[in-house]
């Protein structure tokens, strides 16, 4: 029965990776936020209705509801790491281009440099 969950986990990771690699955009951001909201609701509900988690865990062959929640946490965290990495990468790219333009604008032009030296 654990096989079902393992397959499910791999599918979720692949879907997450696909979205991460396909790039951002408003739609992807919305999807990420919906997933995050679902996760928050699920985590909060586990405090009040732990039996629901135990029931769901048994459905896919996991012993305890807490374990299922842990697996969800791990998956969500991996998604968070991937999307944050992407975001920093993009930010770094923008900062680089900006800094480069500042550097080039403030530098003496190569042609005037030549006039000075000749």
């Amino acid at each position: 029965m654990t096989l079902i969950f393992q397959i499910l986990a791999v599918v979720v990771i692949l879907i997450a990776a696909f979205f991460m690699l396909r790039g951002g955009g408003a739609r992807h951001q919305a999807i990420r936020r919906i997933l995050m909201l679902l996760f928050i609701v699920a985590a909060a509900s586990s405090v009040f209705f732990p039996q629901v988690w135990t029931w769901a865990a048994h459905l896919i062959g996991i012993g305890r509801g807490a374990d299922l929640l842990l697996y969800f946490l791990v998956l969500t965290f991996l998604g968070f790491v991937a999307s944050t990495y992407r975001r920093f990468r993009n930010l770094e790219h923008d900062v680089t281009e900006l800094s480069r333009q500042v550097a080039l604008v403030t530098a003496p032009q190569p042609t005037t440099h030549q006039d000075e030296s000749s």
Binding site: S99, V102, A103, L104, A107
Partner: peptide
């Protein structure tokens, strides 16, 4: 001639500049 990055970016960025 010196071209100055306002912040530290790395050697790859320096080469491209």
């Amino acid at each position: 001639v010196v071209v100055t990055h306002p912040i530290n970016l790395g050697q790859g960025a320096s080469l491209q500049t």
